[in-house]
Computed example of a mutant assay.
Amino acid sequence: MTLVRREPLADQAAEVLLERIRSGEWPLGAKLPGETTLAPQLGVGRSTVREAIRQLAGRGILATRQGAGVFVVALDAPEDWTRTVARADVRTVIEARIAIEVEAAALAADRRTTTELRTLKKALRERETHRAGIEEHVDTDIAFHRGVVIAAHNPILLDLFDSFTPRNRQAMIEMLRARGTFGDDADHATHERLYDAIARRDRTTAATITRDHLTSLTTKLIR
């Protein structure tokens, strides 16, 4: 039996419980023993067990059901999102953008307001005037695409977009430096066509333009 010996006790107890879940001692859907059983097994008090369970519940591993007990609802804790994004390569970042921005473009065509359309137009002009420096170009490009996601009126898509914007920015800068060229007229025309599709509420064209544009970036990676 593994005992908890080091501080902080609740953190250590949570890790011991997680290891026992990972080992299969308590399968998915299983009910954990009560605090009076777990406390002596772990060598800690009942309050420490409660805190350990609270931690694992916060990580999505356990769930407390009123009047029924504590149950296993996941077999492992997902890796921290920030670390996952930070390690992603350029292709992975672009694939994630496709997953988010294609649907966002379609929703934006359906839901955009007049004010959001004006803001998007302003972002498009800013993008056009910042095509000489890589960092300025990437920043104004991201601002335009974020405007599209805002117009989708889906807070989850916006949170996802914002959560990997730092890695996306770094990846785009790396890719453009490697290519040596960026911000040409054809590329900007694509963004103008996306704006026009959203403006006329053409969700199919908006989604298609976005998918084709981002897919072309992955194609250029292997040239």
Results as ranks from 00 to 15, higher is better:
residue 23 S to A: 14
residue 67 G to F: 02
residue 212 D to P: 06
residue 24 G to I: 08
residue 190 T to Q: 14
residue 101 E to N: 04
residue 86 A to Q: 11
residue 23 S to H: 13
residue 116 E to C: 09
residue 148 V to T: 06
residue 207 A to Y: 03
residue 53 I to G: 00
residue 64 T to S: 11
residue 28 L to Q: 08
residue 114 T to R: 13
residue 27 P to L: 11
residue 119 T to N: 13
residue 166 P to L: 05
residue 94 I to M: 03
residue 92 T to I: 10
residue 3 L to I: 08
residue 6 R to D: 15
residue 6 R to H: 15
residue 85 V to K: 11
residue 191 H to Q: 00
residue 145 H to G: 01
residue 70 V to P: 04
residue 45 G to C: 04
residue 38 L to P: 01
residue 183 G to D: 06
residue 175 M to R: 14
residue 69 G to I: 04
residue 43 G to F: 04
residue 136 E to Y: 03
residue 194 L to S: 01
residue 50 R to E: 11
residue 101 E to T: 08
residue 93 V to T: 02
residue 72 V to H: 00
residue 51 E to S: 07
residue 111 R to Q: 15
residue 150 I to M: 09
residue 164 F to C: 02
residue 213 H to A: 05
residue 180 G to I: 02
residue 81 W to T: 13
residue 8 P to I: 05
residue 91 R to C: 05
residue 135 E to Q: 12
residue 176 L to I: 04
residue 164 F to G: 02
residue 28 L to K: 06
residue 45 G to P: 01
residue 223 R to Q: 15
residue 215 T to P: 07
residue 60 G to I: 02
residue 167 R to Y: 05
residue 212 D to S: 13
residue 201 R to S: 11
residue 209 I to C: 10
residue 184 D to C: 08
residue 43 G to K: 04
residue 31 K to V: 10
residue 110 D to G: 06
residue 195 Y to G: 01
residue 77 A to M: 14
residue 183 G to Y: 02
residue 73 V to D: 11
residue 74 A to G: 12
residue 175 M to W: 03
residue 69 G to D: 01
residue 58 G to T: 10
residue 193 R to A: 12
residue 57 A to F: 04
residue 27 P to M: 10
residue 216 S to E: 06
residue 69 G to L: 02
residue 98 I to N: 00
residue 152 A to D: 05
residue 166 P to W: 03
residue 66 Q to M: 14
residue 9 L to I: 06
residue 74 A to M: 10
residue 120 L to E: 00
residue 186 A to R: 04
residue 76 D to F: 09
residue 163 S to V: 13
residue 218 T to C: 09
residue 170 Q to H: 12
residue 53 I to H: 01
residue 144 F to W: 07
residue 31 K to T: 04
residue 144 F to Q: 00
residue 158 L to H: 03
residue 57 A to D: 07
residue 145 H to K: 02
residue 93 V to Q: 02
residue 10 A to C: 14
residue 5 R to H: 14
residue 215 T to L: 15
residue 90 V to L: 15
residue 104 A to T: 01
residue 155 P to I: 10
residue 154 N to L: 09
residue 2 T to L: 15
residue 160 L to I: 10
